[in-house]
């Protein structure tokens, strides 16, 4: 048995002798930034906090969010359905009025099909929304896209109602 293999086995076995190497713990990302209840269309009143008057920009963003922050798709499709056109228009209006703001489009799929294909499909969905925003005047520099494929479902479950909630593009604005 070669030394390298022995070493591997010793390390992987967390052997009794010697302190084992720690696994790589990747620093926590700001998961809170992801989708929350506040972004699912009907906005929660963040205005409850007394004395915190919204700036004009924040109000405009709230306005766009009220129209909706998630676009849903049919199975294995990336076409934007007519009912979501108002959401695109609302965010285009906001971004056009605030050219220094950037939106991040996060593409997702349901769990069916292979994972890397779904990464491609989520990207295709995010790109469809990106193009629609750009057609309404939003600049390329204001938009980033990322595809999570099926890796970050909105809800767990293997039925059509779960699938429908997971096939989506989310509009995410960071501070």
């Amino acid at each position: 048995m070669r030394i390298t293999q022995l070493l591997l086995i010793v390390v992987s076995g967390l052997a009794l002798a010697g302190c084992p190497k720690k696994p790589t713990t990747i620093a926590e990302g700001q998961t809170q930034e992801g989708p929350t209840g506040a972004e699912t269309g009907t906005s929660l009143d963040s205005g409850d906090v007394s004395g915190s008057a919204l700036s004009a920009e924040e109000a405009a963003l709230e306005e766009a969010r009220r129209v909706g922050t998630i676009i849903y798709f049919d199975y294995d499709r990336a076409e934007i359905k007519p009912e979501y056109v108002p959401i695109i228009a609302a965010h285009a209006k906001y971004l056009n009025g605030n050219p220094n703001r950037r939106v991040r489009l996060e593409g997702h799929t349901d769990e069916r099909g292979s994972r890397e294909y779904n990464i491609g499909l989520g990207e295709r969905r995010a790109q469809a929304v990106r193009r629609a925003l750009m057609l309404q005047g939003v600049t390329e520099a204001q938009i980033t896209t990322v595809s999570y494929g099926e890796e970050r479902p909105a809800v767990l479950g293997s039925d059509e109602s779960a699938y429908a909630k997971n096939r989506r593009v989310e509009f995410v604005y960071s501070r």
Partner: peptide, 20 residues
């Protein structure tokens, strides 16, 4: 892990997806 499921070792851990 070993092919029989023993000797599991965490190689990387994250709150964001790891895949492939």
């Amino acid at each position: 892990a070993d092919a029989d499921g023993e000797n599991q070792q965490v190689i990387a851990s994250s709150s964001e997806p790891l895949m492939s």
